[in-house]
Amino acid sequence: MTQSLISRVRQLGRRDGAERAADATQAPYVCHCKHVHYADVDKAIRKGARSMADIQRATTACTRCFGCRFELERMLQDAYGDAYHRQSTITLPDGVRGTRLPRSMYMPVLAGFRGYDVDTRVIVFNWEGPAHPIGFRADLLTLDGTRVQAIEHSVASGSSAILDFRGDDAGSRLPGGVGVVKLILETEEVGSLRPYFHLLTPTCISSTHEKKGPADPAKLKERNYHWIFPIGKGRRNDEAYFFYTNTQAVPMEGQRLVWQSTGGAVESTELPTLEFSQSACIPLHERFETLNAGEGGAVRLDPPLHAVAGFMLRHEPEAQLWRVQHL
């Protein structure tokens, strides 16, 4: 299954207009959700589209999952050069505001992360779901949100779809061997279609499920609780990474991680500003000196404002053992 799937993978990256035209038969869509071709966007730009909103209005591209935002912005940058001014926030134009947004699902991808022998596998299980096959698209994104691979697939009732992201394959497209897979179902109905992923090493398999983006990515909603990364008692030498993706169409800024131990230690670290679908993987063991001292406590995301798809990773390098859990 994996081999046949790989043969269907469309690779997307930095290309100029001529290369895109030459690739048209292999990668016809810049927006897979709305089936908008590169040629449609080129045409809209030639007719005067100068902004993301113009392209959205003219083509309906980037009005569903926003996964093609960076590719469209690259096309605008190619066309207008310095005259193009990027907007950090996408606002849907009036004409397409009624578009229903599926809740995108996010999972971290470790594929040779930091030189470690670790791969990622995504599984979508359609058990007692819709009787017809459910299509989905999986975008492989770098941490800066650039889409480097798009996989279109479907999963029949009673079956599973399995996608492998190996260090010697996907890892070559991901700087640092780390990225995120963003999965969009073609249906609002989810049921059992809740993807889980595996982190695979020669000595272990660790697994948890995806995290969904908010129903309305443009609306900031204050949570009445903090997301935390719990740290148990006992001195240890393992690594701890906080992985998160901004799932809102609003820049994530002014956030920090706060480590609070039961012994009274409080340390904090500022987080980088992330735009929509951008991710970061923060090595907590390098930021917080007392994290592994043995007292236990929790690292919290503060303030409890922005919606992220967050995951906690613990790693014992010598044993090649990973533990992963969602926030």
Partner: peptide
């Protein structure tokens, strides 16, 4: 070995 982590931050920000 089990640690139970009890965090008021996780329970509520109120």
């Amino acid at each position: 070995g089990i640690s139970v982590i009890l965090s008021s931050h996780h329970a509520s920000a109120e």
